[in-house]
Simulated assay, not measured.
Amino acid sequence: MIVAVTGSGGKLGRATVERLRDHGHEVIGFDLTGPAGPGYTRVDLADYGQVLDALLGVTARHSGVDALVHLAAIPVNGLIPDAATFDNNVTASFHVLHAAYRAGIRRIVTASSITATGFPFEVAPPFLPLDETVSAAYNTYALGKIAEEAISAQLVTWAEGTSITALRFTNVVGPDEYATFERAGEPGYRRDLLGSWIDARDGALAVELALEHAQPGFEVYNVTHPLSGIADPSRVAAERWFPGTPMAADLGEHESLFSARKIVERLGFAPEHDWR
C-alpha cells in the first residue's frame, strides 16, 4: 500500500515508517520536520487546506494514498498550556480524519492513549486487567483522546466500507531508553501506567497489524506488551496500588494490568522486544 503517516518524525512515527517500508509499503511522512526527499512532505495539520491537499496528492511525491496512519500530536500535558493541548490535538485529528473522508481514504489507523482510560489512576480502575470498555479522562490530553475516538466512531459511518482503528498506546519506550527498567523493582514504578509499557518497534508492529486486519467499522485496541514493565507479580502490585479492586481470576503472574488480551486474540499481536 501507499501509506501516509502523520507524526512521522516522532518516536513511534519513525519506528512505524521504518517497519512499513521494510515490509514493502510505500510511506509518505507528514510532519513539520523530516528528512528531505520523496518519503516526506512538510504539512501543518492545523491548516485543513494543507492536510486535504496533501492527502489528495503532492507533485513529485504521490498522487493519492491507500491508507492513513495518524500519530501526530502534542504527546503529553505540560509542554504547552492545557487548553492549547486539547485545541491542538483535537483540531489536528479532525482535520486529518475529515480530510481522509473527503479524499476517499477508507483504511485509517489513529493513535489514542492509555490516558483515555483513567491515567494517572488516582481514581482506581473498576477492574483489572483494564480493557477497552473503559473510558475516563483526568487531563486535557486524555479528554482530547476521548473526543477523537468519538469523532472516529461517527465519521466511520459516513462512507461505506470505512475502517478506523484507534490504538490506545501506553508509554512508548525507545530502543535507547531501557535503562529506566533498572527501577522496575521499586514499589511505585509505573503505577500511573498500571505497570504497562511498549517498545516503539512493537508499537509499529501493532500499527502494521491494524492496517492488515482492517475491517469496516470503528475498533479500539490497547497497545501494551502482554507482560508488565515491573518486577513484582501483577497480583501483588495490583493489591498494593489498588486494594479492593476486582481482578480476573486468570490474571497471569506478570500479565500487564493494562490488558493486551484483545489485540493478542484478534490481531495476533506478539511483541518482539522485552525489557527482561
Score class of each variant (00 low, 15 high):
Gln215Cys: 06
Asp131Trp: 03
Ala72Phe: 07
Glu177Leu: 03
Val220Asn: 06
Val223Ala: 10
Arg191Ser: 05
Leu251Thr: 06
Val123Arg: 14
Asp274Val: 05
Phe94Ala: 14
Ala231Pro: 00
Gly24Pro: 12
Ala124Pro: 12
Ile198Ser: 03
Phe269Cys: 11
Ala238Met: 06
Ile74Asp: 10
Thr16Gln: 07
Tyr141Pro: 04
Gly217Thr: 06
Leu12His: 04
Gly252Met: 05
Thr59Leu: 13
Ala136Arg: 15
Asp87Arg: 13
Gly13Val: 04
Leu55Gln: 04
Gln50Val: 12
Val51Phe: 08
Leu12Val: 08
Glu272Gly: 15
Leu257Phe: 09
Gly7Cys: 07
Pro129Val: 06
Ala237Thr: 03
Ile105Phe: 08
Gln50Arg: 13
Glu149Met: 02
Thr180Ala: 14
Asp31Val: 09
Val172Pro: 01
Ala46Pro: 00
Asp47Thr: 03
Gly217Asp: 07
Tyr178Cys: 00
Ser196Pro: 07
Thr59His: 14
Ala260Gln: 02
Thr59Gly: 08
Asn88Gly: 00
Val51Leu: 07
Ala166His: 04
Ala15Gln: 03
Val123Met: 08
Glu265Trp: 04
Pro81Tyr: 12
Glu26Arg: 15
Gly37Val: 11
Leu257Lys: 03
Ile146Tyr: 08
Ala206Leu: 08
Ile74Asn: 13
Val207Tyr: 04
Pro35Asp: 15
Glu212Ser: 14
Ile2Phe: 14
Ala103Asn: 05
Arg183Gly: 00
Glu18Ser: 15
Val109Cys: 08
Glu253Lys: 10
Asp22Cys: 05
His213Val: 02
Met1Thr: 11
Gln154Ala: 14
Thr245Tyr: 05
Val76Cys: 09
Val220Met: 08
Pro246Asn: 08
Ala73Glu: 10
Ala238Phe: 03
Val134Ser: 01
Arg201Lys: 11
Arg14Trp: 00
Tyr221Ala: 04
Ser228Glu: 07
Ser93His: 15
Asp53Gly: 07
Arg266Trp: 00
Pro75Ala: 10
Asp192Tyr: 12
Ala238Lys: 01
Phe242Met: 01
Asp82Pro: 09
Trp275Asn: 01
Ala92Ile: 05
Leu211Glu: 02
Pro81Ile: 12
Ala116Asn: 10
Asn222Thr: 00
Ile146Leu: 15
His213Arg: 15
Ile108Trp: 05
Gly188Cys: 02
Thr133Trp: 05
Asp31Gln: 10
Ala184Asn: 00
Pro246Leu: 11
Ser259Gln: 01
Pro81Leu: 12
Leu55Asn: 06
Leu194Gln: 02
Ala142Pro: 12
Glu132Cys: 11
Gly10Lys: 03
Glu265Asp: 15
His70Ala: 12
Leu32Lys: 14
Arg102Phe: 04
Ile198Gln: 06
Val27Leu: 05
Ala210Lys: 10
Arg14Ile: 10
Arg201Leu: 09
Ala260Arg: 02
Phe30Ser: 01
Ser8Leu: 01
Gly49His: 10
Glu212Pro: 00
